[in-house]
Design a protein around this nucleic acid. Sequence first.
DNA 1: ATGAAAGCGCTAACAC
DNA 2: GTGTTAGCGCTTTCAT
Lengths: 344, 344
Amino acid sequence: MAGKGRSRASGRPTLEQVAVEANVSRGTASRVVNGSLEVSPYALKAVRDAIRKLGYVPNHAARSLVTRRSDTVLLVVSESEDRVFSEPFFASIVRGLSQELSNTPLQLNLVMASTGRQHDRVEQLVRNGHVDGVMLISLHGDDPLPQNLVAAGAPVALIGRPPVPDATTVPYVDADNEAGARAATEYLYRQGRRRIATITGPRDMAAGLDRLSGYRAALRGKRGVTRLVAQGDFGQASGEAAMRELLGKDPELDAVFAASDPMAAGALRALRAAGRRVPDDVAVIGFDDSDLARNTNPLLTSVSQPTQLMGRKLAELLIAQLREPEAKLAPVILPTELVCRESA
Amino acid sequence: MAGKGRSRASGRPTLEQVAVEANVSRGTASRVVNGSLEVSPYALKAVRDAIRKLGYVPNHAARSLVTRRSDTVLLVVSESEDRVFSEPFFASIVRGLSQELSNTPLQLNLVMASTGRQHDRVEQLVRNGHVDGVMLISLHGDDPLPQNLVAAGAPVALIGRPPVPDATTVPYVDADNEAGARAATEYLYRQGRRRIATITGPRDMAAGLDRLSGYRAALRGKRGVTRLVAQGDFGQASGEAAMRELLGKDPELDAVFAASDPMAAGALRALRAAGRRVPDDVAVIGFDDSDLARNTNPLLTSVSQPTQLMGRKLAELLIAQLREPEAKLAPVILPTELVCRESA
DNA sequence: ATGAAAGCGCTAACAC
DNA sequence: GTGTTAGCGCTTTCAT
């Protein structure tokens, strides 16, 4: 007599039980759960009551099995083995992401993919339908993963402009690096600085390139301004070295825009070592408005990015594709903001 | 005649197709896939070949449906709404975690749970069998979530010692905060410092408490040493304020152990403002060996934690419980290391 | 609008 | 050792 009625091994109520409780068929119960409009108000109420009473929650696996959707999206942190992740970024972006996702039935899967093997695993995940879409936050420029995923037919969204404008265009969200750099440089100019240097990021990262063009754009056509460019790699040590080099080239320089906070911090060290006062002798501006900027001496003026918002937009970009696979999505470029502290 | 044979809508081969290809039954094929030993070498080979040939990969949903396992573990970042995430930590721990997980069939789900509503959602996830276990990295002390999850019967593992030794004991991994603090303080003592202060963390966090006892332990029984304690909250501003307070109490102090890097950076600022040279007049040591420590001026001597290893151990702790639900697991305490730079 | 029924792909119990 | 089979819980035609 125990027949279909009560629970089996697992204690969770099934749709069948809901249907019995509500005196309808399983089909109807399913329709209610999935928000189909083709249900009589009466049945609707009965089922809803039953659901509440039983504390019913759909079984994800069972649903997935028939719909062939996983209701799971993947966040891939594609970092090269050695490079340390730029921190504040990560947590903040994930926070935005989660926020956006919490309005949906989507689950967030996370994988770190440094090695080629792990890259393959990601592609597997997609091909096997374990995930419905992929978000990628990639630290180095020439990552082939996004393209591969797109080729595999998966919805993909990126943080950060892909370095090479590729044939298969994949939607991305990025901060307006150029505008941010321009604002910083213009700020220096408006303060009366006329010998303005910049320390750039690596040449193979879009962020580095864009910040350099922002610097150039700000100074374009300005007369009586000395421009100086030194190459860095976003790391602190490279910033310190670049600053020494700059000082060697032009001991009179009165301002530096560094394309990252660690490089700015490095510059601060080099300037101090060279006996320059900041900001009196030389003004310094960084980029990212990281934790670091709030802890240097002097405190760092820096360009801040809306990281949390970037996370939200990233999720939006993916969700849009999930809803409409054929949609051609434009990049989302978010505004930056210059945060003034002590160094400029 | 298309009957069972070839593919349906989805292009993925099924176990059935593998079985046909290998001339065995689906049952046998399943045994091979799941590594059952009760299979003839001949069948084994046939099935393996078929799997390779067809590129077969098990359907997660289908398997889940019958095994009632999700093969998914959850990482909950349980942060209070306002508190900013202590950074270097997060990415590094996740990296260790992923590494460990990549040797298993387990997927990593990530949720941020700041609000109560999100906490509930996590409990739902567990109750509905969407996840087989939960790892928790909790930023504030009095988080009830771990206990609730344990009560719900879920395998749970924590980063960070729970502040109150609770009845329901849940396994955790932590750095040896006390030993780390002790090492730092002893180092200061051995350098000949005799007026050694400490800036503590919040009283409701185990890490703060443990580091304070480490400081005390290092100085216990030492004669001719002046001890000074000021309260902080791990934040930079609190460190700066505490340092000023300390300087007021004892202008002659010659060393400070701060329980976090940001507080140490704050102390650096206060010391500079007070005209003290570091490390000549006052030696400073921080805790965490964060990015920050590598970017202050002078560079910060700091106690480093094996964050990546902590991530691995966290995963191990959970996996052990998954394998043996009744196992009583001891806490895993990992050694710290004093990284000497310029400030002490 | 609703019920009946056919699977989704897989595991595990059972029979041989 | 291997094949057969009964579901896991759900969505979705197809009738009605």
